[in-house]
Structure formats: C-alpha cells, structure tokens
Design a protein around this nucleic acid. Structure first.
Length: 1019
RNA sequence: GGGCGAGUGGCGGAAUUGGUAUACGCGUACGACUCAAAAUCGUAUCUCGUAAGGGAUGAGGGUUCGACUCCCUCCUCGCCCACCA
C-alpha cells in the first residue's frame, strides 16, 4: 500500500486548479447562480486564525456542493485592509501601512491557498487600493449629496497618554486598549451618516430575510424599537405676580411693578397676571434681547390688552390691543381705513399709542422682526440709539410683505421666544398621574437657553453639574450601583398635563441626551431608575417627593413602593380601573400627546482622526459657505430618499452642500491618501493628513477659490459596507459594478460570518445597500438572503485564543503536520458549526486517520459488493447532503466515518459506490478525493462531477423492534417491514423475556410505534 | 439588569413531530505485530453490582405507557448589550 503524502497531493492539485482556473466564474444566463459569501479577512500581521478556516471551509463545502449540483457558484475573497493594527504598527515603526498591508495580504493569500478553498481568485479585491476606495468615496458622496451626511460636534474618546482619538472598539472597560491609560471625552466636529432615517426599514425588512433567528433578534435589539408617547409638559417659571406688586395709575394705562427686573425674568407664557383684581392670561409673549444682556417684553393678554415694557421708567404700559390693531394689505398697511406708507404709518401708530415724545420722527426707525416662526412678523419701532423698542400690534402674516430692508435696522436686536414646554418620551403614559418631576439630560438644549435667559435661579450649581458630567468617563456614568446624581432647576416648574399639578425639574446624567427627547417624566413609583433617583435626592434633602404617596397602580400582593409592571390604574382620576394597555392610549389622547415609536439606534459617526482610511472627498470653502447662506435654496424636507438619480444634479448646490454650508464635494476620484512622514494624529487631535499642507490646501472644485480638504478619514467599516457588490465586477472603472452583473449575481444567497459582526457590520452594510437601492443603483433592497454565524473556537482551556494567553493555533503548523484535508475535516468535525467549541490539536489525528483510511479504500474495490454496503451508502449520501444544507457538518463527517468503518468491516465495495463516496467527501477533503478520483481513470476534476443521487432505502429492509414492558426495555427482535401491526404485537408479547416481566399482571394496553418499538403496559 | 445560547463519559460531542441515551472522534487500558519504539490492527472503556438487575443527560418537581427532548421552579457557565424612559 502506497503511503499517503498530503504535501505532495495538495501541492499538486492546488497548482493544477489555479492553472486551469477551475473555480473562476463567469455570468452564465443558462445557469442558475448561487452566491456564497464569507466575511473577507482583515489581514493582520498575526496571520490566518483557525476561526477564519472554520467559516471559509464551511462555505467552501457549500460552494463545492452547489457547483456539483449544477449551479453557477460565485465564491469570492478579498481583503478588508484598512484597520487599526496596521496603523498602530505604522505609528510604532514608521513603515508605510501600504507596505505592511502588502506583506500581510501576501501571507494570508498564501495561507488561504494552502487550504484549497475554491475561491475565485480572479475577483480578489482590496479595500485599501485606490481602484476600490474610489468607489467607497463615490458612494459616500452619494450619501452626502442626498443629505444623509452631516457634520456635528460629537465627543470622541481621547487617550491621555497616547494622545490620540480612539475608536469605541479600542476603549475596553473605560481604558485605552493599547496602553491601558485613561480615556476622556473630547468634543470634535464629526461627519455623521443618518442611519437612523433607515431605522424602521432596517427593523421591518428583517422579516424578508432568512437570517438565523438569533441574528434577527440581535439586530432588532440593537435598533431598539419602543412604542410610547410624546407628552408635552408646560413650563411655569413663576406666578409671583400679585396685586400688591402691581399698581395702575390714575389714567389706567401705566402699570407700576415694584420689581420690574424680577418680573421680566420670571414672567412666562403660563404666568397669570392680576391687575386691579382682574386676571389676565398671557396669549403671546415676545422677548427682545439687547446685546448688553438686558431685554424687553411685550405681552399680549387676554381680553385684548397689551402689556408693553418701558425700561427707562421701570414701568409697563397697559393698552387695549384694538388701539394698535393692524391689518396688512399688499405693500401697505391699513389702519382704521386709512392708507399710509409703511414707515410713516408706523410712526403714526406710535404717536397715537405712545405719544410723539417717545418716538420722534427721524430719530426712530421702524422694523419688522420674527416672533414666532418664519411665517409671522410683528411691526415694531426702535429708537435712534437702538436701546428701546416697542411693538405695535399683533402678529401679521409675513408672506405678504417685503421685509429685507427693514430687518437690517434691527440687526443688533435678537429675538428669543420663551420656551414654553418640554417634550418627554415615555413608554408608560398610563403612569402619568404618578409623574412627580421631570428630568432633563444635562446636555438638553433647553438648559443652555434657560441659562442664557437667566430663567434659572441656581445657574452656578447647574453649570457646575453640567461640566462635571462632561468630564466623567463613560464607565463612571454607567457603572452599576452608582449613585444617581442631579440638580434641580430652581425657578422653573412644569405642569403635569394630566392633573395640572406643578412639579419640579431636575437635570441628571442618568437621562441620556441621545435617546427619545433627552427628557423624561419621572415616575418614582413605577420606574426603578426614577425610584432610585428619588430616594437618593430625598437623602440629600433636595426634594420633597414622597414615593409612598404617588403610587398609582397597586398590586395586591406587593407592599413595595415600586411596581414596574402593568395593571389596573388607581389614583388616576377618571382613568381609575382602566387597564394599562388601554390607559396608555387614552391618557395620551387626553393630554394631547402623540403615540410614537422611537429607536435607540444612533446616527453613525463616520469620521476618524486617522491616517489609514479612505480620505473623505470633501473640501471646505469659505466663499461657497457665504454663497450657500445667501442663497434662498431650501433643503428639501423629504422623509424618504427619492428614488432618482437626477433630481439633485440640477441645482448649484446639492443637498449635502446646503445642509453643511461651505462643504463641497470633490468628484475627482479617487482622492488618494498622500504619503506622510508620521502616522500619529496631531496634538490637536487631527488626523496626520492635516499636516500635509500641499494636500490640504486646494482650489475649491466649485468656485476655484482657496479651500481646504477634510482631513478626517472614514472608519474601517466603510470598505466592507458594499464589498459584496464589487465582487460582481471587481475591475470596472466606470461604475462601482455593472448593472447587469449586479442583477445576475445579487443578492448574496448565503453569507456567513462572525457573531461579533451581527450588529455593526451587518447593519451598516444593509443600510448602504438600502440606500443604493433607493437611488436606483442596486436591484434589491436587502443584500443577503441567508446569514449564518459560526461559533467561536476557543483555545485549549476553553479560553479565547489570544497572543497574551499563548494559546493561538497557527494553521500553517496544522497543515504541515496533518495536511489541509485533515485540517478542514477536523475544523468541521469539532462540533456544531454555529456553536462555540474548543480546539484540541490532538483531535486532528482522528480526521487524519480517517483520510488515510479513505486513501487505502481502493484496495477494497471488488466487482460486486454487498447490498448492505449500497444501502448504507444511500443513507450516507442522503444524510451528508441534508447536513450540509443545515450546517451540520460535524454529523455529516461522522456519518461518512461510519460508512467507511462499515466498508472496512465488510471488506468490499464496488467501484461505483467507491466513486460516489469520493464525490460526497470531495467538498470536505478536495485534494485527496481529487487524487483518488483521477486514479480511477477519470480525466475531469471530481469537482466538476455531478453530486450523486441516492435511492430510497428498499422496502424489504429489516427493522429492529424494541420491546418494552412498562417503559423499560426488555428485549428486541428483527422484523421485516411487511408484517402488520398485530403480527408484530403478537410476536412481541410472546417473547420469553416479555412473558417473564409481565408475569401474572394484566396487560392494560400495547403501544406500537411503526418500525421502532412495542411497549406493553400492565396494570 | 436585559437579550441570546449552553449544561450529556476523562475530553470534543451524537440523539428532538417525545420512542434502543452516550453515535462518531480523541484519550486511556490491555492484547497482537516488533529485538524495541512509533505507526497500525484488535478488545475494552457512564456508573453500582459476581450476576440477575438497578441508577444516571446541572438540581428539584410535573405531564406521559414512555422525557436529554415538553411544562414549572432553581443553579452554573459563555457571548452580546447595558441607566434606552
């Protein structure tokens, strides 16, 4: 018997296959396609991992089987080449990442080829090659042009000792992964991709896919859909205004307020005024602020009164609104049926209302200003020193009048509408009666404005808390068991809309700015976090809230103060007795809230302050910024991306340029990475590209003026977000892939990868694909039909393989010792493909022995074999075929081992059966089967042969019937399948062992399971 | 805290429309071959018991003629997410 020399055989066929290109694929309309995809590797310096081998072998088996079944199979490979380890290595050594990448991919390619995968190497791609990233950049520009990319200040992780920005993945347990140093947040302008606009579709369309259920679940959890309601809480700054503080003078027009400044600061749209015993509510409040920080008020009151501020005399003027009633018709203003030119008219009104001495003609000017949104204007007058202004009349429709000239004269005046409400998102509107305070995230935009307008009393305390929060590391902010902290916003209250009770407002960092509206209603009796916060604030004596008294849903058995479940409402006014699910809808309706679905998915931070990534092909131009700002172009407000290629091309500025004034696209692609001297980010946290002046300073592609390039690069997820599309047409330099080729090959039929990519990569790539679908560039709205994940291979002790633990297995060593075929078989034999398992190098000898036995099998070939061998083979063909489809590679292999053992026992096999066996083994062990196949005299490759059919097992086969008495096995016998149920029962009951066990007991019943078992039940 | 998954020999694991638990492989022991070793082949290998037989699939309970499989309670481990309102 000749010796099995794996090295010789594997080398021989790997060369032969490559030379003949037998796995290279072309579009062939006559054949059905099948697209197998594995996650392309990041070619690190550490070389191939056994985990790669597991994934690639599995789909190689699938690809080979599908080919044998006559499908046109695309099984491509390439390199995900932008990444941190390469960059970090470059920083350390100063070697250009291109060179490192080249070296690493060469090594990976060699390693992959030594495993005999049936990749179509002619389609190899590399995300770091300009030919490839040209299209990554191009797709980014499409996002930009459609208004899905925008710049925003965002915190980044900054390592204090490495002095570089870290990706989230590099921050492990709150410290820098590389050096273990402290990480803090730094704010920086970042490019964002608006993936949240696709949240709903990314969620819903999972139903269209055949992803493994656990993968769908993980995606759904990541997107984080919750149903709830937006509820508005009106703000009350103060109701201090009382009779004694107001005086009306004799003619009834001048109101004296004892503390005008206090009144100015505290009056609010929800304030109620009492003047001479008469109550007024405020219909509209206009607050004008001067540059020195002081401001003036104009209040439109119920009953048609207007309360106008007079700073100089520390008084307010109360007038009847109808005195200043204005109507606008065309260009002119009609005032009590007389027509005046605009300016003249305004003065006429001023004289009439306030007296000529206040606004002398020629010394004062008229102006318009915005008050409540873009559609309404008020007419006003400002004195010549621009220190005093007033309004004359109620708001009027603005779209009928020309305002441009008049705006300028008041340009040093800024209007600021007072904020009147806070929106909160809650999933539990049914607990609204228990809402005893509001909490805003420290980053909530209202707080800045409260501070600006001096609407809070304890500004210093609040500012201190905000800055402390910003400095906190993530880990401190979220660590479990951490005390909740917060500060009350004194001087501002909110009104609970359901019972009109006044409740305090806090800021606290347990409320996240990025989720919902960044504000919550706190229901301590029904929410754990609110309960904890309340208890802690009570301990600090900062609030009066008593959790006991606000319980609204009572659970009979529960005597706790906290209950987070659902139930029947109590202490909820007219909603008492209503079930939660109904109350959610009813209470929301009652308070004028809006049922809403929110997603916890955040927009994608798309900037990295790094060298080794795709440059972002945008340029900043000051001149274009001005032109955008002066243009009247509006950003279209569409909910869905339009399915059109042309719309955005007809304007001078595209949507992205309008959205990000000054940023213009540079369509001269690829925008290549320039060479740099050093790969570290700059001290200011900019990417190394910022130091390449020649590259940074460019002519604006739009106006030709001086402009600067964006120096951030794209994240390493970018290139992998569309790579499966490029495989269909990897060399095209006109488009990212030819439409017809995309149509033939996509979507991917089966995509396998690691569970660790289930959330980010899988979601990002689905997002890009959907966007490309929306703009008409790909034929389907989902990229992958089936997605599976292989389980992780742990090291010997059941721990994760890692360099530091020293338990990393190098595939090269295994191939050298045992050969690629045995290695592949062992990887698949290890355990269930989708579950984690641990590696044991000693185990490879098992599959090696199996391969050797296969190698010697030809000695058993005879002219006529036993029928039982043929039957066994049929069963095995069936099982192997099914197991491959179901990813049960381990049992497929064990069934082939059983067959082989059986043949060795029988000591004979026909040539025909032998060849069939080689065929079903060939996807698993492609080299040795090819060798043996050629030895049978076949000229064509076994991998081009047809997958064998199997015959259903013949009817007259015998079965073993197990006989139980009272559920315990007592005997078994072999029976031909043509016996009837009664015959089998009779035979069972007459067995000696059965008679012995039944004894004198009476037989209650006899259960028969076809071809399997008889159970005799006694009483 | 939430989601997902898993607990079966010394080890990786097999067995689910509920029907012979421990397939297949590793390891180990003994034997054959050999001067010897390796390799190979053969036999054995859950456990108690001489045997007949009994017990065992993380623990405990339930449903059933019959449970690794279904239901309930609990424990342990892994992965992912984590103050998501």
């Amino acid at each position: 018997m000749k010796k099995y020399d794996h090295f010789k055989i594997e080398q021989k066929f790997q060369k032969k296959w490559e030379k003949e290109g037998i796995y290279n694929t072309k579009e062939d309309k006559s054949k059905q396609k099948y697209y197998c995809l594995v996650e392309f590797p990041y070619a690190s310096g550490e070389g191939l991992h056994v985990g790669h081998v597991r994934s690639y072998t599995a789909l190689d088996i699938v690809a080979r089987k599908k080919r044998m079944e006559g499908l046109n199979v695309l099984y491509p490979i390439g390199w995900d080449a932008f990444g941190l380890p390469t960059e970090n290595y470059a920083i350390k050594t100063g070697v250009n990442p291109k060179i490192i990448t080249k070296k690493n991919t060469n090594n990976f390619r060699k390693q992959l080829k030594s495993l005999g995968f049936s990749f179509d190497w002619s389609r190899e791609i590399n995300t770091s090659s300009p030919e490839y990233y040209k299209w990554t950049q191009w797709i980014f520009l499409q996002f930009f042009k459609h208004g899905l990319a925008y710049k925003k200040r965002m915190p980044i992780n900054w390592c204090l000792s490495c002095k570089i920005g870290l990706a989230n993945e590099e921050v492990v347990n709150g410290v820098c992964e590389r050096c273990g140093g402290q990480v803090e947040k730094r704010e920086k302008e970042q490019w964002m991709l608006a993936i949240t606009k696709y949240a709903e579709r990314l969620y819903d369309d999972l139903d269209k896919t055949e992803f493994l259920e656990k993968i769908k679940i993980q995606q759904r959890n990541w997107i984080g859909k919750s149903h709830g309601a937006l509820i508005s809480f009106a703000l009350v700054t103060s109701q201090i205004i009382a009779d004694k503080k107001l005086q009306i003078n004799a003619d009834g027009k001048i109101v004296l307020i004892t503390n005008v400044q206090e009144f100015r600061e505290n009056v609010n749209i929800d304030s109620k005024l009492k003047i001479e015993g008469r109550e007024f509510s405020i219909k509209e409040l206009i607050k004008f602020k001067l540059d020195d920080g002081s401001f003036y008020l104009k209040l439109f009151l119920s009953g048609g009164y207007v309360l106008a501020d007079d700073l100089n005399s520390n008084s307010f003027i109360l007038v009847k609104e109808k005195d200043t009633n204005l109507k606008i018709e065309e260009d002119d203003i009609t005032f009590e049926n007389k027509k005046y030119s605009f300016s003249y008219k305004a003065h006429a009104i001023a004289e009439e209302v306030f007296g000529e001495e206040i606004f002398k003609k020629g010394e004062s000017e008229t102006f318009w200003d915005y008050t409540s949104g873009n559609n309404y204007l008020s007419l006003g007058i400002v004195d010549k020193n621009k220190k005093r202004l007033d309004f004359l009349g109620k708001t009027i429709k603005a779209d009928k009048i020309e305002v441009t000239n008049l705006r300028e004269s008041a340009s040093n005046l800024r209007s600021s509408a007072t904020f009147t409400k806070v929106n909160v998102f809650t999933t539990r509107p049914d607990t609204l009666f228990g809402a005893t305070y509001l909490v805003l995230a420290p980053e909530h935009e209202l707080i800045r404005k409260f501070i600006e307008n001096k609407e809070i009393e304890n500004i210093k305390e609040v500012e201190k808390y905000i800055s402390e929060t910003a400095k906190k590391k993530d880990i401190d902010r979220t660590a479990e068991g951490k005390q909740k902290t917060g500060v009350e916003l004194k001087g501002i209250k909110a009104t609970n809309p359901v019972n009109k009770k006044e409740i305090p407002i806090f800021i606290a960092d347990y409320v996240l700015a990025g989720y919902g509206t960044g504000a919550i209603m706190a229901v301590p009796a029904h929410d754990e976090r609110d309960y904890a916060f309340t208890s802690q604030m009570n301990a600090d004596k900062k609030t009066q809230i008593d959790a006991d008294k606000i319980e609204i849903i009572k659970v009979i058995e529960s005597n706790e103060n906290l209950y987070t479940g659902y139930g029947k409402l109590i202490n909820s006014g007219k909603f008492d007795g209503m079930e939660s699910n109904e109350a959610i809808k009813e209470i929301t309706k009652f308070v004028g809230g809006e049922l809403k679905t929110v997603y916890s998915l955040r927009d994608w931070i798309f900037s990295r302050q790094r060298y080794w990534g795709e440059p972002i092909p945008l340029v900043f131009c000051n001149e274009c910024k001005k032109r955008v700002e002066n243009s009247k172009l509006q950003i279209p407000n569409h909910k869905q991306v339009p399915n059109s290629k042309s719309k955005i091309q007809n304007q001078e500025f595209n949507e992205g340029e309008l959205l990000n004034p000054g940023w213009v696209v540079d369509e001269n692609l690829p925008l290549e990475l320039p060479d740099v001297k050093k790969y570290e980010p700059t001290d200011s946290g900019e990417s190394p590209l910022a130091s390449v002046e020649k590259w940074v300073n460019v002519k604006c592609p739009k106006c030709g003026g001086p402009a600067k390039r964006e120096t951030d690069t794209m994240p390493n997820w970018a290139g992998s977000s569309w790579y499966w599309l490029r495989y269909t047409d990897p060399e095209n330099d006109k488009v990212f892939a030819d439409e017809k080729k995309l149509k033939y090959w996509t979507p991917v039929d089966w995509y396998n990868g690691g569970m660790e990519h289930t959330t980010l990569h899988l979601l990002y790539s689905r997002f890009w694909h959907k966007f490309l679908f929306d703009i008409g560039l790909v034929p389907t709205d989902e990229p992958y039909i089936k997605r599976t994940s292989h389980g992780m291979i742990l090291g010997d002790g059941g721990e994760k393989m890692s360099k530091s633990r020293g338990n990393v297995i190098n595939p090269d060593d295994i191939i050298e010792r045992f050969g690629a075929d045995s290695f592949r078989l062992y990887e698949m034999f290890l355990g269930p493909f989708d579950q984690q398992t641990s590696w044991n190098s000693d185990g490879v000898v098992g599959t090696r022995r199996f391969v050797e036995k296969v190698y010697g099998l030809s000695e058993k070939i005879v002219d006529s074999e036993n029928e039982s061998v043929n039957n066994f083979l049929n069963k095995t063909i069936k099982k192997v075929g099914e197991d491959i489809e179901n990813m049960k590679f381990n049992t497929a292999i064990s069934s082939m081992m059983m067959f082989l053992n059986f043949v060795y026992d029988e000591n004979k096999i026909s040539k025909d059966s032998y060849k069939k066996f080689l065929k079903i083994l060939s996807p698993f062990a492609p080299h040795v089967t090819e060798e043996l196949w050629s030895e049978t005299g076949e000229k064509e490759s076994i991998h081009k042969s047809k997958w064998p059919e199997y015959d259903e097992i013949k009817e007259n086969e015998n079965f073993t019937i197990v006989v139980q008495v009272d559920g315990k096995i007592r005997d078994k016998f072999i029976v031909a399948s043509n016996l009837s149920e009664n015959e089998i029962k009779d035979k069972a009951i007459s067995l000696e062992a059965v008679l012995r066990w039944v004894g004198d007991k009476k037989i209650k019943k006899t259960i028969y399971i076809k071809d399997k078992l008889v159970n005799i039940v006694t009483i």
